[in-house]
Design a protein around this nucleic acid. Structure first.
Lengths: 264, 264
DNA sequence: CGGACGATTGAGGACATTCAATTCGAGTGG
DNA sequence: CCACTCGAATTGAATGTCCTCAATCGTCCG
């Protein structure tokens, strides 16, 4: 009954590099790229050549429909993958902008394909990463399709909380890197609605908000509002890259087990 | 300028296996499965072992949230792939039900992985199919997040029209295999709203509707309402399976052409 | 300090939902 | 063959949620 956890984080990140061991013959380090606040990683129609993994910072990805409407599709954070939207057609279908000064690993897609060919593990990482993106989209669709404004905002906050937590930051206090409008676009709401609901939550004592800084005071209450079951915390797949920017080569027992014997 | 660079690099990559032709030893035919109207292909929580490709019929896929709310995520038709939602976690995240008597190819996922390993073409098919699913989700998200009811319904009808057309059926006359409620769920609307809008469209002369049978009378008008630019037709990737249920091994200049010169 | 952008808050209105009453259609059994 | 039933679809009226418009305030940066 999981489904309703509408915001499975697209994160991975945060893994202690314990069991990771990198191949003997090291390929060159992935190149990095610095992005300034407000700068664009790529835009709609740009040719697809590389994937990115966030190293520092928070981004927003969004699409623009034919008639100019904008829809934010995600807020990729540290450890998360960016760029898959270009693979299908060879041209990027969305735009990605840094919400703060940031840095990414740059992965020529050809390398990913090669990696995927050379190792079963690499193949699974690639496929799984993409599959995860599909599931994440479905969750977002549930939210946009069936939930009310309060529920959406609560869910959004809890998702952020979880992701920050996984990165080792506070789960209850953080800065929103995005504007109300961007939040609204992501949630299918108008910025005023988002603002109103945040104020309302504050009035109820669920949280404290001042501009971009948020402090969650009553996680259980928010959880209840969001309508998700307390237990579940679906784990995102580990990142394709380790902290050094190398492909994660390790053969994770857990993963293999689940995939091969995998029925429950 | 296109995906080309990244995608084209097949030749000397990891595999000496020539460019194609692992075909010589043909694997056995894919098994098939018949599904009766209303029957379920799989449910939430079922273990993920196989993928399906629709051979006959129309399905609906949907997720159920903790509180019982349903969100339809798609209406897979002939030639389309079903089941990827289970790959990420190893358990299916959604349920798929036949809206009419149907038949599917059953593909053990292990075979897909193998196929993906053996041929560069297979790998690309797999990845591209998944990438396409991601893009499709994003489109749906735009719809759910930013569009008004009329726009959604118009878009839905045009999408159906296009898909039926591609299958060789009439683009302007077809039977809706799903109820108003299911359409509504898919579009993030209530069934009454869908019904009202269809009636309204009929009143305006855009279409004729009687129960499940629809006849589109003014495609341009619907296109305008939907907010699509006139040319815009997002092309789905060819199916993973051919009509016989065999993996599509190569053939085609078509794909390569599109990938290499594909932008313009 | 001033300007620009983001955020808050209020009032009124639009659009979709909810509730409710029929109608239609297919399938069943007398 | 015709009533009967059940689910689906249509349509109306009232309600509610969220949006639009607008004014104000706050904050960040020049």
């Amino acid at each position: 009954m999981i489904a309703a956890q509408a915001l499975r984080s697209n994160s991975s990140a945060g893994r202690p590099a314990a069991s990771v061991n990198v191949v003997s013959m090291k390929p060159p380090k992935r190149s990095r790229r610095r992005i300034h606040r407000g700068e664009s990683l790529y835009g709609v129609g740009d040719p697809f050549r590389v994937l990115y993994v966030v190293r520092v910072g928070v981004f927003k990805s969004f699409t623009v429909s034919d008639d100019g409407l904008m829809q934010v599709t995600g807020f990729p954070m540290v450890g998360e993958l960016i760029g898959l939207d270009g693979f299908d057609t060879g041209l990027h279908q969305s735009e990605v902008v840094a919400l703060e000064d940031a840095e990414v690993f740059v992965l020529p897609f050809a390398q990913c394909e090669q990696w995927s060919q050379e190792s079963i593990h690499g193949q699974r990482m690639m496929l799984r990463t993409m599959a995860h993106e599909i599931v994440r989209s479905q969750d977002l669709m549930i939210m946009l399709g069936t939930m009310r404004a309060e529920q959406r905002v609560a869910l959004f906050l809890l998702d952020l909380s979880q992701r920050y937590g996984r990165l080792g930051y506070s789960q209850t206090q953080f800065l929103l890197r995005m504007t109300r409008q961007e939040i609204g676009s992501y949630l299918g709401l108008k910025l005023e609605t988002v603002s109103r609901i945040l104020s309302h939550f504050q009035q109820e004592g669920y949280l404290q908000v001042q501009g971009r800084s948020i402090s969650l005071l009553d996680l259980p209450a928010l959880g209840q509002l969001s309508g998700l079951s307390p237990d579940r915390s679906r784990v995102a797949p580990e990142s394709i890259l380790d902290r050094e920017g190398e492909f994660v080569q390790d053969h994770n027992e857990a993963l293999r087990l689940r995939l091969t014997s995998g029925d429950d």
